[in-house]
Design a protein around this nucleic acid. Structure first.
Lengths: 150, 150
DNA sequence: ATTAAAAAGTTTCCATGGATACTAAAGATT
DNA sequence: AATCTTTAGTATCCATGGAAACTTTTTAAT
């Protein structure tokens, strides 16, 4: 049984779906003056609470230059605070402001509504299995990228 | 049983995976002077054989302005030919050149290798089910976007 | 037939994000 | 201690892609 010939079709669909979601996500976040990638950085900061800028690069596997710009933007928008680390003057601590937490809540509300609406058409029983599959894919791909980096 | 609370997690993972694949896809296609989106347009044209530019917009659900630019680029690279439609002078027919077909073959080879390597870490037995899930998601999301458009 | 509306593409503007080179601080090496 | 290397982050360059305004052709309405 050689199912590996399905690989390009699966990857193709993941790419297509990812693109659709990203574009739709951008539209939905428009009122907040954020796009989907910026939101994902922001979300991660709030989730972790206090995090080094460097760690964000590893967590999300984005370019550090990109993260730098997003951080600047979030700071300007007063959604996060950036403080110099004591021990290492090169590195920064990122954490949420109150305004940031409030904004996140509003974003999440709209985001979740959207997500539920879009997945509402899928049989609920399938969702846990889907999640399992995606979790596995995510961790495998992350691994591959990290190994490629070295 | 309310599994719909999984929705944001599933969408989040799809976004994350999509991003990783897109960035990696861009890197892999670099030698061909194409990025992942341009490739997907190109691939669709070759797959269909002869297609109206307008239909490409519907098939891939991209902005027509974007498609216009990609088409121009592909034409400049001599991968496709663009001919004015006889009946309707506003619309164009897109089709592959020989160079285009050769280039696509080379791309696909590298692309498929990459795909197989990345999915090689997944249990083969799961792939058909994954594909089924993704196909369903893809069609549901496409529907949602189209309805939103109207 | 004339005017109005829609449709197919293009152009232009601008924020975005990847790549590269750079700065400054920290760690390693001699 | 002085020099070399690595590391965290920034600045700069440039192709990309979304949004909106625009052109031209086609279709609809009066």
């Amino acid at each position: 049984m050689d199912n590996l010939h399905l690989a390009p079709i699966i990857i193709g669909k993941l790419l297509n779906i990812g693109g659709m979601l990203q574009r739709q996500g951008n539209k939905i976040l428009l009122p907040f003056d954020l796009n989907q990638q910026q939101f994902s950085v922001f979300f991660e900061i709030v989730k972790v609470g206090k995090v080094k800028q460097k760690d964000m690069v590893n967590r999300l596997l984005l370019e550090k230059a990109h993260v730098s710009k997003v951080v600047k933007k979030l700071q300007k928008m007063e959604l996060i605070t950036v403080t110099v680390s004591g021990e290492d003057k090169r590195s920064y601590w990122l954490s949420t402001t109150q305004k940031g937490e409030q904004t996140l809540k509003k974003c999440m509300k709209i985001f979740e509504e959207w997500n539920k609406e879009w997945l509402g058409a899928i049989d609920e029983k399938q969702l846990p299995l889907m999640l399992e599959n995606l979790t596995q894919l995510q961790s495998v791909f992350k691994d591959k990228i990290k190994k490629n980096d070295i």
